[in-house]
Design a protein around this nucleic acid. Structure first.
Lengths: 146, 146
DNA sequence: TTGAATCTTGACAAAACAAGTCGGGTATAG
DNA sequence: CTATACCCGACTTGTTTTGTCAAGATTCAA
């Protein structure tokens, strides 16, 4: 069970935008891609999805780029994940029960419990939370792929 | 983010064995496969891994088959998942930090929190827990793929 | 008005992975 | 000895993920 790079890249890009949010001017795809070591044309796709979900706003033309469409505290991690890869579906039968009367089939209970605990975290954590825990951006040096 | 069928099938097979555990006689791959709608030769692979991790025991020859190698309360869900697809690695950098000084890189904190919460569940839930919550096996009728 | 910067879109390609199959082994009860 | 059952690794197939590309649309500024 692992995260797709879509999600990892997308989260990095969103955090990047959140850190720049106070300056209130757009950043280009190229810059985001360079800073976060994401292939430019791949990032393009991800930002497209994030825009369609209303999480980022794009500005075309020279001096254009992307900015967050809302305040960091209004963007939940679950919003980002949902935009990029749809809702988490650990197993079919949690979402679309085929099970008939076996309403407590043992594994289903388990998968549900796991999914709920993931949801709990992603739905209560916002971009704001992530960047404030992070501390001031002067510390931002190392190389991380996630 | 979804579970592989390896994990879903494997869990079903283990629950199956746990339900039969009281009878104390082996069940064949073929029977487990039929009862749980798992391709026989695929299940073979899974049971091989589970055996190598000491979760099930195999008995060769006629009247042979598989039984749990321990009591259901001694087998944790995390043991099963680990045998079948290795430890959960949401993101590289949680396990093998490359991040240098960026020790609190924002997404890493998040992924770690999610992983820990999954671990908490899988490490504290045993096969016993799953089958007792399940109630008596007379109710076991519906068709579920997970 | 023109051109450069920038986002937009969809089609495509390559690589990785998951799921499933198969054939030929080995052990063992009867 | 033979039928039953596990054992193991190689192989195939299909899907998903990851990434690339080219042509188009919008906007700023000279």
């Amino acid at each position: 069970m692992k995260l797709s790079t879509k999600t990892r890249y997308g989260m990095r890009a969103m955090i990047d935008l959140a850190l720049l949010h106070e300056f209130d001017e757009p950043t280009t795809i190229r810059e985001i891609a360079r800073r976060n070591r994401i292939p430019e044309s791949f990032l393009e796709q991800l930002l497209g999805k994030l825009r369609k979900e209303g999480l980022v706003q794009s500005i075309r033309g020279p001096q254009g780029g992307y900015i967050l469409a809302k305040e960091p505290e209004e963007i939940r991690v679950s919003d980002i994940i949902n935009s990029l890869e749809g809702p988490i579906r650990l197993a079919e039968c949690i979402e679309v029960p085929l099970c008939g009367e076996a309403r407590n089939c043992p594994s289903r209970v388990l998968w549900t419990r796991i999914r709920d605990s993931i949801d709990e975290i992603t739905q209560t954590t916002t971009l704001k939370d992530l960047i404030s825990e992070y501390g001031d951006s002067a510390e931002r040096k190392g190389i991380c792929n996630d």
